[in-house]
Design a protein around this nucleic acid. Sequence first.
RNA 1: GCCGCGUUGGUCAAGGGGUUAAGACGCCUCCCUUUCACGGAGGAAUCACGGGUUCGAUUCCCGUACGUGGUACCA
Length: 507
Amino acid sequence: MENHVRVRFAPSPTGGLHLGGVRTVLFNYLFAKKHKGTFVLRVEDTDQTRFVEGAEQYIFDCLNWAGLNPDESPLNPGAYAPYRQSERKPMYRQYAEQLIAQCNAYYAFDTPEELEQMREQYKTPENPSPQYDHRTRGQMRNSLNLSPAEVQELIDAGTPYVIRIKMPENETVQFTDLIRGSISNETQLVDDKVLLKSDGMPTYHLAVVVDDYLMKITHAFRGEEWLPSAPIHILLWKYLGWENEMPHWAHLPLILKPDGNGKLSKRDGERLGFPVFAMEWKDPKTGDIVEGFKEKGFLPEAFINILAMLGWNAGTEQEIFSLEELCDLFSLERVHKGGAKFDYEKAKWYNQQHIQRADNARLAQLSKPYFEAKGVTVADDQKLEQAVAMVKERCHLLSDFAEQASFLFAAPVTHDLDAVKPKWTAEKSAFFTKWMDGLAQLDEPAAMEAAFGALAAEEGLKKGELMMPLRIMLVGGKFGPGVFDIIHFIGLEETKTRVQHVLAALA
RNA sequence: GCCGCGUUGGUCAAGGGGUUAAGACGCCUCCCUUUCACGGAGGAAUCACGGGUUCGAUUCCCGUACGUGGUACCA
């Protein structure tokens, strides 16, 4: 039956690309790869009032970063070009007209004011939002109530109009959702949605059906928020005579706020301190910049892993997956029905796991900007790679490398002297001076540590009481790899400089 | 309000008529480590509620509650 799987992601280029959006891309991508199919990116830019400069390129950038590049897109057109709905504008009207000819749609000349008036007029406590439907369309200015001559006259006069679907009064629209099973809706409860806007552009409802048909889409994945309008689309497929070619539908669960309730939004990220967009988004109008997962220090493979586990699981105990593994294992049967609350702590854990698996040279390159942002210059890539290896297990984000390893390249600016002062003595001070004087060559960490311990014993001091002071002198705080590994890394000269500096401060 | 969809620990979740109801994140305790982290060993914590069906329901059915989405010339 399914000759060749074709799926599509159809974003509206209006701003930052949300977690949920990328998750939809991911599931499309995985499904396509699993079935050796084609993943199409179609830009749904039919709302000209919401055009945002740069938003389309931004989507490509995000997908590229995530490694989810489409097989066909506006940048890489296949056999079904164009891939931007704004460029497909001339294609939609004929279908809307066909629907009118079949009495499945009609012209409506109502102005926004008249629509508003209708809603006010029919508004009751029981029905707070009256619809343009079988109950009200008889009172409106449309081709159902006007004579053909009047309609023609209005059109000839250039009166703005839309084309609306005429929802039947007593039908049950039933379809099978790949994730949820049988779904049914009563048509009397669905309103006469606009199909073609007065500017000649289709609405989503018409465009999605026409384009999915023309682009031979076999499986249509979208967020759960589309479920209520599914009957419109099903009916359109039927009315247009394409029922046998209708794609299989799958409505994906929503990604919800970690606290409270509702869909995860950009605001929640700002409020709770975590990113929501894949990559940094700069609003060209307001100039506002919203940090993305990439800038926050996430590895793309971790981001993918996080998204995959939000609503899907392999049914095994495996938690960490590569994109390749996901392509192989993904199946719609294992996609959840219920929405999932986003857990940033777990997201960071995934990233930490992927950092441990990542190549050190790559981590060095990716974390370099964070050192630079802290004003720490790292000239030697080899050294940085070594540093990365030393601290990687304590890093959850790429930015953590700068926190955890800057002292390997620049002496600490502040020192946690409170950890040393209370127990500081002149004897300890003397010990460190003597120790430095004896430091002649850079030995292996273990050898240096043994020498350190031996000297301490000679001086009648406990090694354990001297380790923390030494660490504070070199690192500035109570963290980091083994002290002698650090000395081995920064060298004798730098070690002495740092020790002397703190010795002076303690004197 | 109406309609759709959903509901297993705090979170992600496995399981789907009989189980001690997996595992992971987070939290707590201990071990390792004279730091932090990693790692290891433990621990607290769950089937929304009410009716059925059944010898037996977390699992099937029906209600209720709650959540969520929709109810635009936005997608």
